[in-house]
């Protein structure tokens, strides 16, 4: 399973990079969204996909075969942080549309004397 997941993650990264290299600002942000999905899945996969039960100790009875809890905790933190950053980006993009009237990255370059 891990090998298949690695290929899927590679595919997500590929799509994300391709979108980030495009001209439209909103596509770039979609690209970053895909990139964070790829990274989260990578974390999960690297922790190992084995384990029969979710990492919850019910009534103090410990089962032997839990899924690894540490990557899950790390991913949870990463999800929240990437959400915060993405929402901030989106608002920046929204303000850029409002002020500058464009979402084309080629036009958002500044002028020659503005260096």
């Amino acid at each position: 399973m891990e090998i298949i997941m690695s290929v899927v993650i590679g595919f997500l990264f590929m799509a994300a990079v391709y979108l980030m290299l495009s001209k439209s600002l909103i596509r770039i942000i979609i690209g970053t969204g895909l990139l964070s999905h790829g990274a989260h899945l990578l974390l999960l996969t690297m922790g190992g996909l084995g384990g029969e039960s979710p990492p919850v100790v019910a009534d103090g009875v410990s089962v032997s075969d839990y899924a690894d809890p540490l990557p899950q905790a790390l991913i949870l933190t990463a999800i929240v942080i990437s959400f915060a950053v993405t929402s901030f980006f989106l608002v920046v993009a929204y303000r850029a549309y409002q002020e500058l009237g464009t979402d084309n990255m080629e036009l958002l370059k500044g002028t020659e004397d503005h260096e």
Binding site: I26, I29, I30, G33, L44, L49, G51, E52, S53, P54, P55, V56, A67, Q72, I75, L76, I79, V80, F83, T86, S87, L90, V91, A93, Y94, Y97, Q98, G101, T102, D103
Partner: peptide, 30 residues
């Protein structure tokens, strides 16, 4: 599937909010 219930919950909620935000930005395209 990979036995991470807390992640699944968070991911569902956050994805919903993100898509709403994207739609907002889309709506305001010049």
């Amino acid at each position: 599937i990979f036995r991470a219930p807390d992640l699944a919950l968070t991911q569902l909620v956050i994805e919903t909010i993100s898509v709403a935000l994207f739609l907002l930005a889309f709506y305001h395209l010049p």
